[in-house]
Design a protein around this nucleic acid. Sequence first.
DNA 1: GTGGTCTAGACCACA
DNA 2: GTGGTCTAGACCACA
Lengths: 120, 120, 120, 120
Amino acid sequence: MILIDYKDSRPIYEQIFDKLRLLILNGALKADEKMPSVRTMAMELSINPNTIQRSYSELERQGYIYTVKGRGNFVSDIGKLREEYRKEIFNRLDEVCASAGNAGITGEELIEHIRGGGKQ
Amino acid sequence: MILIDYKDSRPIYEQIFDKLRLLILNGALKADEKMPSVRTMAMELSINPNTIQRSYSELERQGYIYTVKGRGNFVSDIGKLREEYRKEIFNRLDEVCASAGNAGITGEELIEHIRGGGKQ
Amino acid sequence: MILIDYKDSRPIYEQIFDKLRLLILNGALKADEKMPSVRTMAMELSINPNTIQRSYSELERQGYIYTVKGRGNFVSDIGKLREEYRKEIFNRLDEVCASAGNAGITGEELIEHIRGGGKQ
Amino acid sequence: MILIDYKDSRPIYEQIFDKLRLLILNGALKADEKMPSVRTMAMELSINPNTIQRSYSELERQGYIYTVKGRGNFVSDIGKLREEYRKEIFNRLDEVCASAGNAGITGEELIEHIRGGGKQ
DNA sequence: GTGGTCTAGACCACA
DNA sequence: GTGGTCTAGACCACA
């Protein structure tokens, strides 16, 4: 379900955070569904529980999951968060556009690339 | 000429690398032009020379500048590099598109955002 | 009668404790009235009986209820406790005043806020 | 400068966070001033560096300090944050008022308590 | 030297 | 069993 890329420069806790967040935004993990326990996931991925804990804490801090002490972590009912994620993506798009401008790439070229389905 | 943002989470050597690379890609720094010496730039920016050296090494490794022992660093004649930089940007665009897909954003929405000039 | 907020960070036993204490201080639960049994309440709230037990133990420890073996839990005749609860509140108020002082908020501002009915 | 209360139920990292935040809000630590290094503070307080690190991370996340890799942590120029802290305090005051209402304490009593300087 | 990440292992509160 | 906190110790990137 989750694969860790040790060659990725991003820290492990962040990779896990990103993938879980995506599963929640996707709807693959639904509201009030129980997440795998910190220890279970740590065992499955052969990773220290502290590291998983950190991913979960960050998910909780940003409102993607909520914690019930002694019971586990559960998926939140996200609503506003979808909107925030959309903004995050448009911001990243803006950055790409800015870099493109510096490299002499026009907006039309970017659009053509998107239309072509990327990675042509 | 170069401003460092200490509140930026990116390391200093990377900020400097990015800005110098941009000046070269821009044509602001032209082929065979001499770069400021490591020490000069370190003084001007009040930064550890090791840090400047690291930016320069990375620029050299990627082919943006070349070093002549005892004489200094000079801007390369970049040709292929422009093309590589373009690829890098299209790759970043592909990543944004992939994330967008996961969030239910269509290519048309991205295109509309680009057309609108972003940051509306 | 009692609603548990699983998204509240406070532990469940504490939420139940707080709400029952309030019902007693309110007078909604009167002296010598019988409390619902641990099992009944556990069933109604779909909660582990151990958790309810813990809330009841804490209520008993602080004198809000008393236990008769084999018969159940009963509301105490609270008198001093009202006074203690008042002290607790004034202590919390003192803490707020102290924090306010550190933030440069004057007592008059706090008073004005109270007069204004708060949450304006 | 900072004392840890091991009898306090709040975790150590939170106590340190609170105290440092206060020193910043106070102006005792000024904008762009260097914070003690994680290790130095860990030694002084005889606490594990990871714990200090956690306090610093939280301070950074909330914008009270900023980190320059390889150099250290520095106090941010807080502005909005003062306003947020004020709000936090008024929220806490609102909670006290609500509890007071439940205990039959009037707003006037609270005001009188504040006027009297508390802890009378 | 400075912060960032991770592991191993422990102990605690809570259910 | 479940998450939360902490210590001890290691290794890395950065300056």
